[in-house]
Design a protein around this nucleic acid. Structure first.
Length: 654
RNA sequence: GCCGCCUUAGCUCAGUGGUAGAGCAGUUGUUUCGUAAACAACAGGUCCAGGGUUCGAGUCCCUGAGGCGGCUCCA
């Protein structure tokens, strides 16, 4: 599953950095996400079902002249943000006269500017730069656009020792020459004494810039290339009103409060240790959550005709040579030697499933053969990319490989989409589908591709829901459907994936079945994962629910709180009855006061707190308090147990 | 991997080259309590690791590890 990776760990930044909006026209927003979509050519291929896609996709290449010149300003707020970037550059140059300027576009929520500076920036520098910006804004300098002949403009930036600007202009010249057009005039914007190469537009004057705040300094390669110098990038945010700025800062605080790395510690779910960077240690409560999710998807798979398999983690490199991974992804694999032979920890499950498929002769009557596997995968991610549960070196997928006849494809895809809806419904998540079609460099018979794509399209159309199409975004061996979800904070995450494999498993591993005519023919295969990586999915759930999981999957569903010691016996009896019905329950037998027990249970975000005092013990009832602080007194034990059992079995999202 | 920042008790964090601190959590005792923190005592440390400077290093310097924010990568 060559593209499974995206389900396992892609899109981290979009989630970490806040909402990525559909329909965004800001080139700069790409720095917050992967750049796949930016490279996709513009197209709307969804039969009019997705009016926003034309807006969404833009043919911009990273580091292109267009990108470097474009302020990213397509609206008033963007123009203001880009203007703020200019004002920040002015302040930086004021502090460091030798600063060399990169680019400074507007992005979602703000702006950045890249600089080559004589020393690293400190927090004090940011304060000085902010002060410089405030002075410039108070002076209310007008932004003045000027055009000048190319050579004059180039000479200007050369004189002012701005090699990055000169490079941009030289690229522009090279492209003009290539297309046979004359050198274009270049435009600059000046405010006060600060001049910058820029296409604009800008606000009328610096006084029009709203409340702002400089956020962070980060390293960023010039023009996005590891081979180019690393510049210092300052990120800032700027808004039309103070209220909007405050709201933005508040959203960031809220995201921080929900951070799964923080909540994982607070809720005692998992931890990370330097002896195994990029791999979570699952504590009892986290493992309970994990097992609940795993049990739930297993139940679906059993019902939908999957058969579970398990294949080795340590695999000889010849398998990866056959699959093509050794040539392309060797650096991303953990490789080790034994007795002169080279092995690796498996970075994906798919090739090994072929051994089980091929262990006997398959008839057309056997298909579809759905082999599921909770495989433990290892990928040697570069150290700087690791992050909590969302970017890991070890993860488990709810993976499956479906071997089927070509005529079964549409039905199977339809069933899988239904599977996605069923599973995501447990969490109140609405899946979004993105259809990636045949890329330029594709393997296999074009007619087969066409047929597969039309069947996928038919299955998607049959859903009656809008979906996006990314032409050329399929894997080289397969068209695919990627599934995204939006969490409670409006952040988008890539989770599930459905890939129709025409080449890798069927051809490279020479899989066949015997058809009605007794001929050995190729099956198609589908790689699919519904949660994707369990690690990643749990990370998303923690942030989505801010740790307050639905009753059905909460690690602790209820805490019994005896008011005084004399109620402990009844509390234990109640907990025993609950445990017998598989309810995950704890009894707080500490000698804390009831108020403190409630506080601790609230902090652990336990759905139900069951208070037991004299009245309740007498009547064999409980006083229920839920996480929202709502109370329901005098509920009979049996009635409460039945309620929780029902909620758990129904897997309701709240 | 690259740039910057961070690493002190289980957790959150103070600590400006001169005896290592607080709150919460923990243990013990007192308290037996009605919907988000009872009271007291005790215990808890390789100040990330290694090296260096210094009479003296949690503090300054170097190297490494891990984490965080980005960049790059992402089957």
């Amino acid at each position: 599953m060559f593209d499974q990776r995206s389900a396992a760990s892609g899109q981290r930044q979009s989630a970490a950095s806040g909402k990525r909006q559909f329909g965004s026209r800001r080139h700069g927003s790409r720095q917050m996400g992967d750049d796949k979509e930016a490279k996709a050519p513009a197209s709307d291929d969804a039969s009019g079902q997705t009016p926003e896609v034309a807006d969404y996709f833009e043919a911009v290449v990273r580091g292109s002249v267009e990108e470097l010149l474009d302020a990213g300003a397509h609206s008033d707020i963007d123009a203001m943000r880009h203007s703020a970037a200019h004002v920040m550059a002015e302040a930086v140059v004021g502090l460091f006269p030798d600063a060399q300027l990169g680019i400074g576009p507007s992005i979602d929520d703000g702006f950045y500017y890249d600089f080559l500076l004589p020393r690293p920036l400190t927090p004090d520098d940011l304060a000085s730069i902010e002060a410089g910006m405030r002075a410039s804004i108070a002076a209310d300098h007008a932004f003045v656009r000027e055009e000048r002949p190319f050579e004059e403009g180039r000479a200007f930036f050369e004189q002012h020792r701005q090699p990055f600007k000169v490079e941009i202009l030289d690229d522009l010249a090279a492209r003009a020459k290539e297309s046979g057009s004359p050198l274009p005039p270049i435009s600059t914007y000046t405010h006060g004494t600060f001049v910058d190469l820029c296409k604009g537009p800008h606000v009328a004057s610096t006084g029009k810039i709203g409340p702002f705040k400089l956020m962070t300094v980060a390293g960023a390669y010039w023009r996005g290339s590891e081979k180019r110098p690393m510049l210092q990038r300052i990120y800032g945010t700027v808004w039309a009103t103070q209220e909007e700025l405050d709201a933005y800062l508040h959203r960031r605080e809220e995201a921080k409060r929900r951070d799964h790395r923080r909540l994982g510690v607070q809720l005692d779910l998992y931890s990370f240790h330097d002896v195994s960077p990029g791999s979570a240690f699952w504590h009892p409560k986290g493992q309970r959550l994990w097992r609940t999710l795993e049990t739930a998807i297993r139940e679906v798979q059993d019902r939908r005709g999957y058969q579970e398999i398990s294949t080795p983690m340590l695999v000889h490199k010849k398998l990866w040579e056959q699959s093509g991974h050794w040539a392309n992804y060797q650096d991303g694999m953990f490789v080790l030697e034994s007795e002169g032979q080279t092995f690796s920890l498996k970075p994906m499950n798919c090739p090994e499933s072929t051994f089980i498929y091929k262990s006997r002769l398959r008839s057309y009557r056997d298909l579809p053969l759905r082999l599921s596997e909770f495989g433990r995968l290892h990928r040697n991610e570069r150290s700087g990319t690791l992050s909590g549960l969302t970017r890991v070196r070890h993860f488990v997928q709810d993976d499956a490989h479906i071997y089927l006849r070509p005529d079964q494809l549409q039905d199977e895809i339809g069933a899988l989409l239904g599977e996605v809806y069923e599973v995501y419904g447990w969490f109140g998540l609405e899946p979004r589908f993105t259809f990636g079609t045949k890329p330029e460099k594709a393997l296999g018979d074009p007619a087969l591709w066409e047929k597969a794509e039309s069947q996928i399209r038919a299955a998607l159309d049959a859903l009656g829901k809008p979906y996006r199409v990314k032409p050329g975004d399929g894997a080289f061996y397969a068209p695919k459907i990627d599934i995204q979800i939006e969490d409670a904070l409006g952040r988008e995450w890539q989770t599930a994936t459905i890939q129709v494999d025409l080449v890798m498993l069927p051809e490279r591993f020479d899989c066949t079945y015997i058809d009605e005519n007794g001929q050995a023919v190729r099956p198609m295969t589908i790689h699919r994962a519904i949660y994707g990586s369990l690690e990643r999915f749990i990370g998303v759930l923690v942030e989505h629910f801010a740790g307050a999981f639905p009753v059905w999957c909460a690690p602790v569903q209820a805490v019994v709180i005896p008011i005084a010691d004399r109620h402990v016996e009844a509390a234990d009896e109640l907990a025993g009855l609950m445990a017998a019905r598989k309810i995950r329950v704890e009894v707080d037998r500490s000698d804390n006061r009831m108020q403190n027990k409630i506080r601790l249970a609230q902090e652990q975000k336990v759905p139900y707190m069951l208070v037991l005092g004299d009245r309740e013990v007498e009547a064999r009832t409980v006083a229920i308090r839920n996480r929202a602080g709502e109370q329901e007194n005098g509920v009979a034990w049996d009635a409460f147990i039945e309620r929780v059992v029902e909620e758990t079995e129904a897997r309701r999202p709240s």
